[in-house]
């Protein structure tokens, strides 16, 4: 068990090291999120009174699109010269390869959100978030499920010439619960208007997260082999 966890961390650290050398993925992902904030403003000409209404959806759209681009790129890095096969030769269960990648993507996305959220709050003229804990819980739970499924599907589509096109097409339909739940929870957190449904959303996201971390870990090996 200890050896397994060490392998997961080693794999995630390797990806972080690769990322630190170029900072390409994190820069592209973060600036994409910020661009969405600006585009939303252009598209809907948001005044301060409507800010709270558009904020949750805009934030999630930015996160989902930027994250998809980031994960597609990160998966392609492993595809260069078939080097993703190197770790597959190591004496660790191949589910560790999935969890390592997942962990790296999760940390990356949370960092990007750390930058994006203050900017979105400013851009949508929010006076702050009524329930910060709920806000963070919703963001983390939603990102977790998104990144877990995204890591599986990005890894599986990375061999394709049309990765960039295929990934959102296969990923977004499956993310319906994350999109709906994420928006509902963030809305409740921003307005402070918590209903019994908010709790149900949190539980639903948790179920989604656990399910789609466990199932891909089991299935990852079959999309790895050549």
């Amino acid at each position: 068990m200890k050896a397994y966890l060490r392998a997961v961390l080693t794999l995630a650290r390797k990806d972080a090291l690769l990322e630190r050398k170029s900072l390409e993925t994190v820069t592209a992902t973060a600036s994409f999120t910020l661009l969405v904030a600006v585009l939303f403003h252009f598209a809907f000409d948001i005044r301060s009174a409507e800010g709270a209404r558009f904020f949750p959806g805009a934030l999630w759209i930015a996160v989902l699109f930027a994250g998809t681009i980031g994960m597609a790129r990160s998966a392609r890095i492993d595809e260069v010269e078939g080097r993703g096969r190197g770790p597959a030769l190591a004496p660790v269960d191949r589910s560790a390869l999935f969890l390592g990648k997942f962990l790296f993507h999760l940390v990356l996305m949370l960092l990007v959100e750390g930058v994006a959220v203050p900017v979105f709050i400013a851009a949508f003229a929010l006076r702050g978030v009524a329930l910060p804990h709920l806000f963070i819980a919703g963001l983390v739970l939603g990102t977790w499920g998104f990144v877990a499924l995204g890591t599986l599907l990005a890894g599986a589509t990375s061999g394709e010439r049309s990765t960039g096109l295929l990934l959102p097409l296969v990923l977004f339909p499956l993310l319906t619960p994350v999109a709906l739940g994420g928006v509902a929870i963030v809305t409740a957190a921003v307005t402070g208007d918590v209903t019994p449904a908010t709790g149900t959303w949190l539980r639903l996201l948790l179920v989604f997260d656990v399910l789609f971390t466990a199932v891909p870990a089991l299935l990852y090996e079959s999309v790895l082999e050549v």
């Binding site: 599986a156 339909p173 499956l174 619960p177 709906l180 639903l204 399910l211 789609f212 299935l219 050549v226």
Partner: peptide, 28 residues
Amino acid sequence: QRQKRFAAVFGIVGVIDIPLVHYSVVLW
């Protein structure tokens, strides 16, 4: 072969996901 296995993985993940999708939309 790898793409075919990917399709299979997607098929399995999809069928697990559909009840959650439905539940989330009902909640909506």
